[in-house]
Amino acid sequence: MSALRVRVWRGGADGRFQEFDVPRHESQTVLDVVTHIQRHLDPTLAYRFACRVGMCGSCAMTVNGTPRWTCRTHVDKVAGSGVLEVAPLTNLPVVRDLVADMGEFFDKWAKARGQFKPTRTRGDDFAVVRPDDAARQEADAGIECIGCGVCYSACDVVKWNRDYLGPAALNRAWTLVNDARDAGQAERLRAVAGDAGCHSCHTHMSCTEHCPKELSPTRSIAGLKRATISLALSGEEP
C-alpha cells in the first residue's frame, strides 16, 4: 500500500500544520486517517468523533479547505492530488488540533427558539399530524439535521456577522414553525427576524451545497423570511 501525505492542524488558533505519512487502504475515510495518526503516530492529537456512521454529527472538520463529515468522506474522493489537509471547522473557535468549540453554534439554536414548546400535556390524547399535510412535509424536509456544524462553517454570512444565527439554527426553527403541536410560534418568529436572523441570509446556498445530509437550510430560511414579513407589516414588533 502506498502512503498518503497528511497535513494536520496542531494547536489552537495560532497553530500550524504538521505532516504525517499514513498507509493507504481501500475505502479509507478521512476519519480513519485521523484515527490512524492518533493511535499509531501521535497519541496527543485531539479530535472528536462518536458514531462513525454519519448519525451523530460530531466528526466534522475542514478537509482540503472544505467542511465535511469525515466519517463518511472517502479519501479517494477528496485527495486526488495525493495530499490530504485536515483542519478544524472554520467560523468557530479552535479548542485544540481538530476540535472546534461548538458552544456558540448550539447557543444559537437556543436563541432561535429551537426548543419544542408543547401545547398538550400527557393527559391529552395524541395530536393527529397527517404525513401528507403541507406543513408537515416542510418540517420533514429539514428534520434530519444531525447538528454537525458543516453549514455554519461554510456560511459567508456567519463569517461577516458574528451575531448571525446561522443555517442550522434557522433550519431547526423552520421545522418547528411547521409543527402544528408547538406553542412558541410568535416568540420564535421574533427571535429569527432581523439582522442576526433570516433576513441577513444572502441565499449564497453554501449551506445547501455542503450539507452532508443533503438538506436545504436555504429553503428553510426563505420560509422564515416569508413567515416573518406579515409580522413586520402588521406593526407588531416581529
Partner: peptide, 9 residues
Amino acid sequence: RRFEVRLWV
C-alpha cells in the same frame, strides 16, 4: 428587529 425587517421588505 421590526426596523430591520421593514428595511428588508
